[in-house]
Structure formats: C-alpha cells, structure tokens
Design a protein around this nucleic acid. Structure first.
Lengths: 259, 259
DNA sequence: GCGGGGCATTGATCGCGATCAATCGGCCGT
DNA sequence: ACGGCCGATTGATCGCGATCAATGCCCCGC
C-alpha cells in the first residue's frame, strides 16, 4: 500500500491528508481539524475483509483514503447485492444507527481514516459546520442513489454498462496524460472483479463480458489488460448511455467528486 | 380537498397538524414550532400538477400532509422514470440546491405544508435540532433508496410487485378494521395508476397486471375495485418478497387450471 | 517448466418479460 | 342512455439476457 498515506494519517496531520479537501473534513475549522487529528487514525484492510457486517453494531465511521469499499446487502437467500461503491474521499459508515443495514467490505486493499461512531457524533455535535457538511453530503448521495436506481430499473444492460464506464472515466483518479501527448489518454480502471461489477449493474458476468467485448469491437474501448481499458471514443460511449448524460455530468462534474 | 387540514395549516397551528409528530417538525422546540407556524402555509395541488419541474429553481420545501407525490426523472426521450414516492409526513423538496434534479408531481390531489427553501435554510440554521432531524431523516431515506435499488436490480418482477404491495400494506393509513371482526382487514390502496406503478417497479403495465392477477388467483389478494385490494394472506405475500423457489410451477399451473 | 485453481471469455439454449394488438370496463359530457 | 375516451386486462409473439457448459487465460506454488 501507499506508505506516504499511512504515515500522514497515523500522524494525525489531517491537513496533509490526500482527501481532506474533498471529504466532509473540508468544512472543519482549524481547531476542529486539530481535534479530528487526535480522534482519528488510519486503518488498513486487505482486499476481501468485511469491515462492518450487516446487522453489526456500526461503530466505525470515517473516510475512504484509498481503495474501494463495497456496500452490500445480503439477501436471505445468501446472494449478495451490491448497493454502492465507495471511492477515496467518500464518507464511510452510518452515523446515528445502532446497527448497520449494509455490509462494508474491502473490494480492494483499502485505507480508511476512521474514528468511533459515538466519538464522531460527539464531534459533530461540537462542530455544527461539520454536521452541516455531512448533511449536504448525504443529500447529494441520496440524489445519486435515486438516479442510479432510476437508471437500473429502466435501461438496457448496455446502457448500464456504458453509464458505469462513463462514471469511472470521470473520476480524476483514472485520468492519465503522457507528457508529450496533446490528447489525454483516458484510462478506465475497473476497480473490482467482473462478478462484483455485474452484481452492481444487475446483470451477470457473462453478459457484462459480452457487452465489454462489443464496445471493444466498436472501437470505443481498447483493452490494456483485464482490468484496464483505454477510452478511445468517449462521445460514442456517452451515446450508448442513453438520455441521461447531462444528469451524469451534473452528478459527477459539479458534485462532491471532482476537486 | 380536506378543508379541516387547510384551515389548521393556514392558521399556522403546527401543533394540530396531522403529521407534525411524524415529520421532521417533531424535533422542533416550542418556539421553533411557533416560528414554523408563521413561515409555513399549506398549499393544495390537483392531481397531475407539476409542483417543481426538473431543472427548475427548487425554491419550495416542506412536508406532504395528504396525498402522494411522485418524484420523477424525465429523460429527453420523453419517458419518465419514477424515482420515489412521497407519502404524508415525508419531507418534500431539496434543501441547499439551486435547481432540482427531479420533478415533483402530484400523483393524487395533494396538500403540502410548504415554505420557501431559503426561509427554511435560515430557519434550520437558527434551530440546529431541526437540522439534525433533517440529517437523520435524510440518512434513513438514503438507506431506503439503496435497499430499493438493490431490490430492483436483482429480483424478478413478481418479487418487486410483492415488495411494493408489502410496503403499502405496512403503511398504517391503509389498515382498516371492521368493528365486529376479530381479524383486521388489511386494505391495500394503490395510490397511483398502473402506468406509474409499473414505471416505479421497472416493468410495464401489462406485466404488472399479470402479476396482480396471479396474486388474486393464489388467494393472496382479493380485488375490491381497480385501486383497492384486500390482503388475504400476508405471509404468502412475504414469501414472494424473498426467495422465489418453485413459484414458477404454481403460477404456471394455476394459470392453466383456472383458465 | 508444470500443474492446478480462479477468473474471464465464448458458446448454446431457454424462458421471462417487453412489445404489439385486441378487448373489456368505468367515467365523462352531451 | 348513448358514444367516446382512457385505463386496465388479456392474448400472441419475439428478443434480450440468464443459465448451463466449455474453453482460454493468468497467476500461484512446487
């Protein structure tokens, strides 16, 4: 893992945290930051670790510093539904709930900036500006969840795949630019395995694979390795997402995600 | 419309509001309630009225007092996606956003307790306990939206229909009890038309209708009129909500037998 | 290098649910 | 009552995507 991140976090130097300007911490006053630095500490989890299980006491909250966290809903029949994905700077956990309604699982190796739930609740009670930031953040997430729900319920599998890829391509983490090139090469890094992506998109690994290969055949994607594609033709990808493109842009362009 | 509600609302007597103990107002202090009484006023909307259109300035917030509000996401191709339904006591509108990402439309005749968005923002800034209640409310809605999204992405149409009916049956508004009966008759009132329900469930009116008729044939529902069913066998409905098992057989078999 | 296991891809088949289309039923105004 | 209109139901057909199955691919440990 990234040792720099670890050291900065464990020193409590929130000002140097790589995500502090994007997470809810951005609203914290100077003294609040200092208090946060004392209360919080980073923790690392290996890929596959269940950080909080569904129904457990949800006693940890915090921010994702690096990696991807899967938010899953186990149905009684045993199969796990992916409800959402948390990326760096996303808030993690569920404040003000005794138990968690979802499982939080490390989809990759993950670094979290965490603190106890009750400590956090006390903290934001003392710092209303952070509670306000949490409110704004939650409202945005609610909008995003509703838009995603609307999308999955009414569109074809290809539209969902295209939308998912488009969202990933918008993440600045995934943008790379060779110094000499005029055109930025947008690399889409699939953060998790096919099975999980398929579950998130409400389809199967087989169908997902077929759709990806279709995009490759259409010269929209160029495969680099199993988990990386170059986005060759972004506009055609957007076409395939259907009619929601400006929603997506507003969601990921002006929202909490972009710096 | 309900004139009693109107009068109570327009007089600003929040204490007598039929939903004030369930909405976020329940957290307001006595003085906050008085301020709310001055700031808010009830408004009635006829069925079909677009209260706030997608992209409009979202300058009204409040609570649903009676009726059902559709939360929709219009795509440019014209078809509208139903993102959520708001029932009495649900919070309405989007605080802290210049424009609304969804349309709010009266699915039935609707009574709202409304106030200006900026007035509301000022109000909760002066009354942190209400802001806190809004935060809790929003967190709950986020969980609910994610659960719904998980459900729609992975389950069959019958499971979605059963879940929807089950949720409706859980609303106390829909429980009625004949005085002499030992067993309460649970009446499920479909609050909106088939087209809208189908859109909400990510299916078509035809498939929805077929599934409802299947439930009637299985003696789980008894039709009263087009928009009202009696829930005869709640436990079987719950069964259909979860794992499917050999429903295919009984569905298919009953259909052939009865026809 | 060799073999094994997990994941991704490709192939073949089948059924659910969308679609097109017709009929039925309630509710309106004239 | 009558006809027109809209919504709900029922019917017939077809395609997308789930499922089962096989192959290919990569990364391990030995």
């Amino acid at each position: 893992m990234n040792e720099t991140v670890m050291k900065l976090g464990s020193c409590g130097k929130c000002e140097q945290c790589p995500v502090h300007h994007r997470s809810i911490c951005r609203a914290a006053s100077a003294e609040a930051m200092q208090e946060l630095s004392r209360l919080s500490h980073t923790r690392n989890f290996e890929k596959g670790t269940v950080i909080v299980a569904q129904g457990d006491e949800a006693d940890i909250v915090g921010n994702v510093v690096s990696g991807v966290v899967k938010l899953t809903n186990m149905s009684m029949s045993g199969q796990q539904n992916i409800v959402g994905l948390l990326f760096p700077s996303d808030f993690f956990g569920r404040a003000y709930a005794e138990t968690s309604r979802f499982s939080y699982e490390a989809a990759t190796d993950v670094t979290l900036c965490s603190l106890g739930r009750q400590a956090f609740e006390g903290f934001i009670a003392r710092h209303p500006e952070v509670e306000h930031a949490l409110l704004l953040n939650t409202l945005d997430e609610l909008d995003a969840a509703r838009e995603w729900a609307a999308m999955t319920s009414c569109h074809t599998t290809m539209q969902r795949v295209a939308t998912f890829l488009f969202i990933l391509s918008q993440r600045s983490d995934n943008r790379f630019c060779h110094s000499g090139d005029k055109i930025p090469h947008v690399i889409i890094a699939l953060p998790i395995g096919r099975r999980d992506i398929a579950a998130y998109l409400g389809t199967t690994p087989e169908t997902l694979s077929r759709n990806l290969q279709t995009l490759v055949r259409k010269q929209i994607l160029r495969p680099i390795d199993t988990n990386h594609f170059e986005l060759v033709n972004a506009s055609e990808l957007v076409e395939l997402t259907g009619e929601m493109r400006e929603d997506l842009e507003s969601m990921y362009g002006t929202g909490k995600l972009k710096a």
